[in-house]
């Protein structure tokens, strides 16, 4: 476990790099993209576990806090979706340098999945594989679930409301998986296979102050990436 700051002087991002436990064969690398807000707090434990599992499975992994979130620089009201996408690009470049790989896998949970999809869909993207774990299907519906005191600015709320997964999937990379632990009627309209793993949601407070550890979902991600 190597804590480090990445990014630029203006956008210092806190990250945790875990080297691949086994370096036999092709070097592989994965950037993990966190959710936002309280979902980030509750799911942190699961993302750490997933990172360790992938590291043991031979992946160099990097997870990091977006600008204005977690231990990264910036204030909460400076965090936004556009900036978070540029932070993912920054994390990809850092991990490629550290791991010595030319391509990386992106794994995003909740809003982190939508951010990862945005980055992976860009024409210049060097994303090898993409895992969308319980992505936000409708930004409008997601905003309704946010608490009144969630410190999200109006500008960001506007950005979130514009999330529309079905239309974003048009440019999804070929090697992608959509994994959900919570089946929603809207998943039927995605026009792509959605893998349902019936297990607890890691981003919802399950035990005091933390989400559950959805082991079967993590196992499935690891299996799919191998």
């Amino acid at each position: 476990m190597n804590p480090l700051f990445i990014g630029t002087a203006e956008r210092r991002l806190f990250g945790l790099y875990e080297p691949a436990a086994s370096t036999r064969g092709k070097q592989r690398a994965a950037v993990l993209c966190y959710p936002w807000g309280m979902e980030y707090i509750y799911a942190h434990r699961s993302m750490r576990q997933l990172s360790s599992r992938l590291s043991a499975a031979g992946f160099h992994t990097l997870r990091f806090d977006y600008f204005g979130t977690g231990d990264s620089s910036g204030e909460m009201d400076q965090a936004n979706l556009v900036g978070s996408c540029s932070d993912v690009e920054s994390a990809i470049e850092t991990l490629k340098d550290i791991a010595g790989t030319s391509r990386v896998t992106l794994i995003g949970l909740r809003v982190g999945a939508n951010i990862a999809l945005n980055v992976a869909s860009r024409p210049e993207s060097e994303v090898e594989a993409l895992v969308l774990w319980d992505p936000i299907v409708s930004g409008e519906q997601y905003v309704e679930t946010l608490r009144d005191d969630s410190d999200v600015s109006e500008t960001v709320l506007h950005e979130i409301r514009s999330i529309d997964l079905p239309s974003s999937l048009e440019a999804i990379p070929e090697r992608s998986m959509i994994l959900v632990t919570e089946r929603l009627p809207s998943h039927e309209q995605l026009g792509r296979p959605v893998e349902f793993v019936p297990t607890a949601c890691p981003w919802v407070e399950e035990i005091t102050m933390s989400g559950a550890l959805p082991v079967s979902a993590m196992q499935r991600i690891e299996e799919w990436l191998r």
Binding site: M38, I41, T69, G70, D71, T208, M209, S210
Partner: peptide, 10 residues
């Protein structure tokens, strides 16, 4: 508790 060092609401 088991919340990491960032704390609730950062």
């Amino acid at each position: 508790g088991i919340v990491h060092r960032v704390g609730h609401h950062r």
